[in-house]
Design a protein around this nucleic acid. Structure first.
Lengths: 110, 110
DNA sequence: CCTTTGTTTAAGTATTTACTAAAATACTAA
DNA sequence: TTAGTATTTTAGTAAATACTTAAACAAAGG
């Protein structure tokens, strides 16, 4: 077994490893949304959405507010958005770099 | 299938979801290390380490330098370290918050 | 109480990921 | 070329994750 802090750290980061969870995080980054609203936005089944929300809750990256029959979700810590955005930038920069390399190879006729 | 950008974003973030990969990232955050050195540090088998390095390479988060028989690994983009550190802070803050809540409950005698 | 609406949980299956052991590749030096 | 060291790749298996369907739970209104 690895050091428990690395273990926990890895567990928290699992919130980012599903495109649907990333879409949820993106949908609630500026304003809270109910589970029903998220179903509309993501266009997935309610149980599937609910399971992804459960992952986000268990890892503590979302906070909830109950109002009547609705449950509203929001991001628990703004650092989550910062980290998420940074990784998006890493991806974009890598894609640009790959594209640049590809162009150079084509120019050289390889 | 989700939007390809969320799909790719999720793929990149998989580098953070193994405690061993986090330990590798931590080990090379300040200075490059060879695969052999990393085996020493992590205390895992060379094939297992090599597989984790392969994940890091495929996602483009590490850069390599070959020197003789050795292959040195370093972080490809400092934003990866920033994102990793932010998620660590999110974890720490959550642990502190949980601890605080637990204390309050005990004080109330619940 | 019964029904409706919003949401979660459970069960089953398919896919993905991680680990172990064995084999292969790459480079260096004798 | 042969041997030795560093590293990766492959194959097989065990464990974790994601999705679908069906069932359960919770709150509100008639």
């Amino acid at each position: 077994m690895s050091d428990p802090i690395f273990e926990m750290h890895a567990q928290v980061c699992k919130v980012f490893t599903s495109p649907k969870r990333l879409e949820i995080i993106n949908a609630i980054r500026n304003s809270e949304k109910s589970a029903g609203e998220l179903v509309e936005i993501l266009k997935i089944s309610q149980p599937n959405l609910s399971q992804h929300l459960a992952v986000l809750r268990e890892k503590g990256v979302v906070a909830i507010r109950k109002e009547g029959q609705n449950i509203y979700y929001k991001i628990a810590n703004p650092k989550i958005i910062k980290a998420c955005d940074l990784m998006r930038e890493v991806l974009i920069e890598k894609l640009k770099q790959d594209q640049k390399l590809a162009k150079e190879l084509i120019k050289q006729g390889i």
